[in-house]
Measured scan of single mutants.
Amino acid sequence: MLDDRARMEAAKKEKVEQILAEFQLQEEDLKKVMRRMQKEMDRGLRLETHEEASVKMLPTYVRSTPEGSEVGDFLSLDLGGTNFRVMLVKVGEGEEGQWSVKTKHQMYSIPEDAMTGTAEMLFDYISECISDFLDKHQMKHKKLPLGFTFSFPVRHEDIDKGILLNWTKGFKASGAEGNNVVGLLRDAIKRRGDFEMDVVAMVNDTVATMISCYYEDHQCEVGMIVGTGCNACYMEEMQNVELVEGDEGRMCVNTEWGAFGDSGELDEFLLEYDRLVDESSANPGQQLYEKLIGGKYMGELVRLVLLRLVDENLLFHGEASEQLRTRGAFETRFVSQVESDTGDRKQIYNILSTLGLRPSTTDCDIVRRACESVSTRAAHMCSAGLAGVINRMRESRSEDVMRITVGVDGSVYKLHPSFKERFHASVRRLTPSCEITFIESEEGSGRGAALVSAVACKKACMLGQ
């Protein structure tokens, strides 16, 4: 009897593995994704193909990295998701002549009506938060230079001027797309009239992360975010950046690689679950690469896999709870928690219980395998993109072996128990001629924006502006 049951459990697990095998990517698959990513990057950089390229390769006008001589107080704003952060950054000489960066910050959550109302409502709310922060720190009387981390696709015309191309991540505030974001912020500050600010720089969160990590390690020339969304930036040779005049030196390019796949480059790798996630998203047909990796989508992918296993009578005796059938019910943090389970399955059992399920031991094991399959594919897909960037940098610099540091931020990278190990191992397999160091950014977005502002202020002083 026991043997029969054991055989049935083994057969069930084997069927589960057959279904989950769809998520496995072979090294040849990853090399294919990497080569296609490089081709799209090239198209994004070139003037004649930029418009139709899915990977936009947006110039950021960040050319210099901090040298350690900029000092002063800077205000930093960070808008990239449902939370908005205001930070005071003091850049100065530390002990023994070292450079020191001290920060104080406060988080504000953005109400739904500000995210989806008008641009005026959104930026009025942001300036209200700045006003509140300055009151708390008794700094209303000071006109501070301000660095703005704005983590949406922007076409820069200068370091302090950028046109919002399109909202992502659930934002829909009308009247912002096609307009200068810094102008919208300046107008809102003017409307309030109770404080003055000098907006000197606007950067993407990947750029802010790279600059913040450069402060720790001067070989950091790539910034990457794996959180709600997924994106990367890197220092490109100016001669390859056709959208900006000049051939000397390097400029940081914001790849906006989340949109890779929007022209069909990933079609052969998309599964039924991916198509369902895409169809029910706020932007169907867009940001397809990001939807395979980002935390906004990972939990939902797992939920759809679990429903398939229920329908195949391989999980929960073929019956799903009402909660499990509800879109968004299986949160991405559950994926991390399930994979963090120590082996007694308590954590998995508790999560499934909150979803109205009474799982068996085998159910718990199957749910864990589903989570591992989805998150491992995410790590491997992400590795193909980064390997594409790094191999490109090595080739354009004609280096036999390139040493490089990548600064990384984002909740999936930082909080998932195995993502970074799987990701690092896969990147290294795909970049055999590179020695890569990964560092995690601390308060990256805010500190990085302030350091970019410090560079901009120093330049302005040198130019006598």
Rank of each mutant, 00 (worst) to 15 (best):
T376N: 08
N180A: 11
D267E: 09
E51Y: 02
T405K: 09
M462S: 13
G80L: 13
E96T: 13
E120I: 04
R46S: 12
I390D: 00
I390W: 01
M462W: 08
T149M: 12
F330L: 07
G444C: 07
E157D: 14
E242I: 03
M298V: 02
L134I: 12
D274F: 00
P359H: 00
T60H: 03
S131R: 13
Q239I: 15
K31Y: 03
V277T: 06
Y413M: 09
V207C: 07
Y349R: 06
M107G: 14
I366C: 05
M381D: 00
I211G: 01
R192Q: 06
L270E: 06
I390E: 00
Q98D: 12
V427W: 00
R155K: 11
V452H: 10
K102V: 07
T118Y: 04
S375G: 11
L309N: 02
Y289R: 00
E52C: 14
L324I: 14
L88V: 10
L306Y: 01
T437S: 14
S151W: 03
K31P: 02
H424I: 09
N240K: 06
S383V: 01
T149P: 04
G223I: 02
Q106S: 11
S64C: 13
M115H: 11
K39S: 10
I19K: 02
P153M: 08
I436E: 00
F260S: 00
A232D: 04
A456D: 01
V91D: 04
V310K: 04
M107Y: 12
T60A: 03
V302W: 00
K291D: 03
S340P: 01
M393G: 02
K32I: 11
L270C: 05
K172G: 10
P284K: 14
L292Y: 10
E312D: 11
A320K: 14
Q239P: 08
S174A: 10
F150P: 07
G183T: 08
K32E: 10
I126H: 01
A259T: 13
E331M: 05
P111M: 06
Q106R: 11
D113L: 08
L25I: 08
V277Q: 09
G97E: 05
R428V: 14
V89M: 05
N283K: 13
R422I: 10
R447M: 12
N283D: 10
M462N: 13
M202N: 08
L430G: 00
E52K: 15
M381E: 00
S453W: 10
A370P: 00
W99I: 10
T103L: 08
V199M: 12
R250A: 05
M107D: 15
Y214H: 14
T361R: 11
Y61W: 11
G295K: 11
E272A: 06
M57E: 00
E300V: 00
E93F: 14
L58A: 04
T362N: 02
Q337S: 11
I211A: 05
R303Y: 00
M298E: 01
E93N: 14
T49F: 09
T82L: 10
Y297R: 03
G407K: 05
A21V: 15
L144W: 14
W167M: 11
T354S: 11
C252V: 04
E442T: 03
V71Y: 03
D42L: 14
G318R: 06
R192P: 04
G92M: 08
V335Y: 02
E48Q: 00
V33A: 08
E28Y: 05
K15F: 09
V401S: 02
D73G: 03
L47V: 13
D194A: 10
E9L: 08
E242R: 01
D344K: 04
K31E: 15
G285Y: 10
R345G: 13
V241G: 01
E95G: 13
V182C: 15
D124V: 04
S383H: 00
M57H: 02
S433H: 11
V408H: 01
V241E: 00
L25W: 14
A329C: 12
A21M: 08
D267T: 11
A21H: 15
N391A: 13
G81W: 13
V253R: 02
D365L: 04
G92H: 06
R303I: 01
M87K: 12
L88S: 12
D278T: 01
L185D: 01
V401P: 09
F74Y: 15
L309E: 00
K90W: 08
H141P: 11
K102I: 13
E256L: 09
F133I: 03
T116W: 05
I351A: 07
F171W: 10
T376W: 11
E196V: 09
L165V: 12
D124P: 02
T437M: 05
T49H: 10
M393N: 02
L20W: 15
I110T: 03
V367M: 03
R369C: 07
D135A: 11
C233L: 02
E196Q: 07
D135N: 13
D311M: 05
A320R: 10
N254E: 05
G249K: 01
S433F: 11
P153N: 12
E440A: 09
G295R: 08
A449T: 15
P153V: 08
G446M: 13
F269I: 09
F423Y: 00
L309A: 04
I189N: 04
T116C: 14
M115C: 13
Q24M: 05
G80C: 03
L164S: 15
P66H: 10
V452Q: 11
R368S: 11
A188F: 01
V33F: 05
P59M: 03
E312V: 06
Y273D: 01
K172T: 11
E268N: 07
T60Q: 01
M197N: 04
S151G: 15
R5Y: 08
E245Q: 10
R63Q: 02
D29K: 05
I404S: 04
D278K: 00
A450T: 11
K143C: 13
Y61I: 13
S109P: 15
A259N: 14
R333N: 15
T49V: 04
R447V: 15
K104F: 06
S131T: 05
P432R: 11
V412K: 03
E265C: 11
A188G: 08
L146M: 06
L415K: 08
E421R: 06
G388S: 11
L144G: 02
D262K: 09
V412A: 07
E395R: 08
Y234W: 01
T49K: 06
A456W: 07
V226G: 03
A10S: 15
K140A: 13
G299L: 00
V199S: 14
E322V: 11
L451E: 05
I126M: 03
V101I: 15
G446A: 15
K102W: 10
G295D: 14
D365P: 00
T149D: 15
N179C: 14
